[in-house]
Amino acid sequence: MRIFDPHIHMSSRTTDDYERMRASGVTALVEPSFWLGQPRTSAASFVDHFDALLGWEPYRAAQYGIAHHCALALNPKEANDPRCTPILKELPRYLEKDSVVAVGEIGYDSITPAEDEALAAQLELAARHGLPALVHTPHRDKLAGLERTLAVLAESELPPERVVLDHLNETTVDRAADSGCWLAFSVYPDTKMDEARTVAVLRRLGLDRMLVNSAADWGKSDPLKTRKVGDAMLAAGFGEDDVDRVLWRNPVEFYGLSGRLDLGERERPELFEGNSIARGAPAGR
């Protein structure tokens, strides 16, 4: 089973996770920029975060044969903090980087005027830099947030086929599907979607434009959820080609809209055991 996790926050995960993901079939992923689990205090903090997503994380991922791309943005939560918003002026330089394949994640958190402004501005940046956009739907007041998101999208230059709406569930997926956007499901241990509910939605609505991600981060989450959905699809009677479509071809097609997806023989540092991550050789070898 080949797996592309289209939304996972590897900066908050350990090297063991990369190893387990690779063993489960994950060979490509996209890491959207996000908050730290606590508020940032400056735009410079974003610069360090972007640096990690453009340097250290791809390097770590490469040790395990995983192609790491990223999506960059000012996240909705911190769009409300004037100490953070100056990062919007720095974004254009970063959106030109080779491994940036989307603007994201953007969207709404508390659905404020500042979030309106950041969302519209970043949709415009996506259009200007030839990138698709990863738009998350808010955790609270999700359906109202989705409606507001679709209204802002309709006014933007970015067409729906270059937008993915994420964190969807049974209450929002039909409205989202009508928009013509791509549809994504975050599969979590306790919140958001689970494997069985995701499979039920796929059975009801089909596989077209569907993405499944683990959205794993620093909270209770599971970087192997993509694999578990693949297994659940097979158990529910989907074929291997169906699984490949949802877990590989669909994310490749969506992020491929950037023209920057590089899944070929990634540059892989020649040393595996002796490098700076898997530091030192095992004793007695």
Binding site: G55, K97, D98
Partner: peptide
């Protein structure tokens, strides 16, 4: 400072 790993 504003480069990715390859630019650096």
């Amino acid at each position: 400072q504003r480069g990715d790993a390859a630019e650096r």
